[in-house]
Design a protein around this nucleic acid. Sequence first.
DNA 1: ATAAGTCGGGAAAGCGCATTCCCGCTGCTC
DNA 2: GAGCAGCGGGAATGCGCTTTCCCGACTTAT
Lengths: 361, 361
Amino acid sequence: MAASTLTEVARLAGVSPATASRVLNGSARTPGPEIAERVRKAAESLGYVPNAQAQGLAKSSSGLIGLIVHDIADPYFSAIARGVQAAAREQRKMLLLATTGGTPEDEQAAAAAFAARRADSIVIAGSRSTRLQDRDGNAGLAAELDRYCRNGGRVGVVGHPVVGAEAPEGYHVVAVPNEDLSAELARELAGNHSGSFVVIGGPEGLLTSDDRIRGFQRGLESAGLAPAEVLRTGFDRAGGYEAGTVLAGRIKAAQATPSGASRPCIFAVNDVMAIGAAAALRSEGLRIPRDAAVAGFDDIETLRDFRPALSTVRLPLEEMGRLAVPAGVGGGPGGDGGTTVSVTGEVMLRRSTQAAAGAPA
Amino acid sequence: MAASTLTEVARLAGVSPATASRVLNGSARTPGPEIAERVRKAAESLGYVPNAQAQGLAKSSSGLIGLIVHDIADPYFSAIARGVQAAAREQRKMLLLATTGGTPEDEQAAAAAFAARRADSIVIAGSRSTRLQDRDGNAGLAAELDRYCRNGGRVGVVGHPVVGAEAPEGYHVVAVPNEDLSAELARELAGNHSGSFVVIGGPEGLLTSDDRIRGFQRGLESAGLAPAEVLRTGFDRAGGYEAGTVLAGRIKAAQATPSGASRPCIFAVNDVMAIGAAAALRSEGLRIPRDAAVAGFDDIETLRDFRPALSTVRLPLEEMGRLAVPAGVGGGPGGDGGTTVSVTGEVMLRRSTQAAAGAPA
DNA sequence: ATAAGTCGGGAAAGCGCATTCCCGCTGCTC
DNA sequence: GAGCAGCGGGAATGCGCTTTCCCGACTTAT
């Protein structure tokens, strides 16, 4: 890492480092044209690359935005990441990425690392958890973030506010109406499904999952139906598959019964779980939507070509990422004080929850 | 960003900054236990967060790894990114992410930005292009990267070496046998398909696409078949969809003909294109594999539940990302001199290319 | 008992850059 | 023609940290 320095450039150009700095990195004062030219040529011939670390140190601002996600290969997060990236680019900043697997401890570590790098802002995506085992982790994360805010950092959150965060100034949250959207989905589903409802949820305490479950039940209730049974499993494809296997067994058993019919409507709290469940049903010889209706949540882009087309709730993932990054310069000290911006989604009813052929309602 | 400094901690602990540094950031020399304790407590009470920029400046090493991809939301890249992230984590480094859309100019800019931040290594993924319009861009990128290498940086490349790169010391490439794997795929496909072959490729000059096309033709040839027609289109889902629409038209026209049969085997040079093509066929009322066989390349994880299951070539994407990040400390000056490590893939024949029912060969 | 060797700690010199302050110069006003 | 503002440039300081170098106090060998 022995690149040439500004001083070397200055010497070669026969000027002072101050002047070289002024011409190469633009300041209020612009040196004379031919001097500037000399400096530029010197820089060019030396292959000078300014040391952003030193610049950052000198002007105490790093031009970095930190992004914390559970797993960058998860399409939900990668879509958000794309939005964050786009926003960062607009702000002429670089993106620092950390993946944590979702444990508050790792998230705290990532936040600390970002703080250490003096990131101008930190964006944290991914469901918060209220599980008991995460209590300490959550507290640690909140403390880290609070400190970061107090030191002038801005944090953007997509989804739920960080559990236990105080110091709301500096926090910028993009709220997702998970509960309402789920309720709406449930109502629409209730409109054209006559069988029972089952929801495949993530582990208890995962806020996103819990919200979606609660909303779904509320929607069912407002449609005059009984609450759905809830199967708890992993918040990923494997979880969906597992639950799907269980459900497939039940469905087949019911079908073998004299009375015959049992065509449940399965709501998985996110698309990848829904896909997992669908795969499980299929591998058990069941068909969708004939033997079961299936719905998900998120409307993951890569999954849109899935057949039968998955009913789901479309979330503006990329937009959410974009909105989550706090505005460029930010207000003065004291911050823009706990902004909250809401996005909205849209229920997408597709083939996977269509009524069985010729059997309306 | 007015966090407390090491000096403040030192003062509070009643020691010198040197000592504080030694206890808080581990050096060869470890101060005495009770002094260390005092310093630690002082740091804790002040909420001290070391300034990584300053640290980087002082020890000239940033603990950063730069990753350049076309689009982080593309599952191909996000899988690689996961691998890179994992490797970075093992090396206790942070990941700097840049997405470029694939233009060499943007890639160069990203490389320069990484160099400016004194990233310890740069990983660049994504197909190289030899298109004429990219010549200057490629040269610029190569120059940027070469300079970075000369300054002691390490660059890791997944896929093709950067076009026009010299200074091979420092370059570390993960070679993907695209051509051979495509040939193998073609041979296996030839074994159980009797109709014509069509390949949907990316724009001419995209190395990855070209390699896969060339390999496929070679495989066909070695199976005693005539080369396939090649449709050029975009290297993404939209491109696949577009080409699929064209092909659907042809297939339907041929089916309407008295002679009837025309069941082409379509090879799209990557999975998302294949999915796009499949979607197009389907929206034209065609079925897979009944009316056409379809194969892709990459074996994107999110697409594995797609039905009919897509025949493809599995690439160890995550592993590729992991391998692409140059080893931690690296050899002495002079570098580890142009390492190349190869990965291998595996042809996955699945339902989408199965012979039409009851019609072997 | 003295000399040589260690160990724990501090002073100070950078790392590469931005920036404030200062200085000599030109061009202007009165 | 003397005094002044304005401008282009350089010297010097500091950002927060690491690291050499140095020094006193201790332990150990002769």
